[in-house]
Amino acid sequence: MTEDNLTVRKLKDKFANAILEATTFREEVTVTVSKGEIFEICRFLQSDEDLQYHLLTDLCGLDFFPETPRFGVVYLLYSMKSNQRLRVKTRVGEMESIPSVESIWKVANWYEREAYDLFGIRFENHPDLRRILLWDGFEGHPLRKDYPAEGPDFDKPFVPEV
């Protein structure tokens, strides 16, 4: 079923080496690609006449700690032309960075800032990569698996000096 999908076929024709895996789970198509070509793949998906994935519905990070490469970035695309969704996944290591897709879909600006804020994933060529939900000066990235859910200073209550 995955092989019949037009998007998957086109991607495999054009980026034969970069497409690592294409799966279907609960009727959702997921394509795993290598990090190096993510920008070209996204631009192709957005601009190709037959595909037209004009809407970046979602972009988010994943933490696979302690696996390497540590992080995952997931792009969820929607094409109004074919009324189809496509999930594109890639992996990125802790010390690496990944190309930003901000110039393809403007909404990626905030989504990438969020992934940077909560996971510490760095995006190359992002125009304004700073924290978005947490304040500047916050230490750590809370959605990482090694960050305690109750906070690092849970057992050290803040007592103001009188």
């Binding site: 789970f25 609960r26 959702e28 979602d58 988010c60 969820l76 999930r87």
Partner: peptide, 19 residues
């Protein structure tokens, strides 16, 4: 596995992506 399901909320598309 991983799924994404969305609804038309009053403000727009609200979706949950669960791994």
């Amino acid at each position: 596995g991983e799924v994404y399901a969305s609804v038309e909320a009053s403000k727009g598309e609200l979706g949950f992506y669960i791994v």
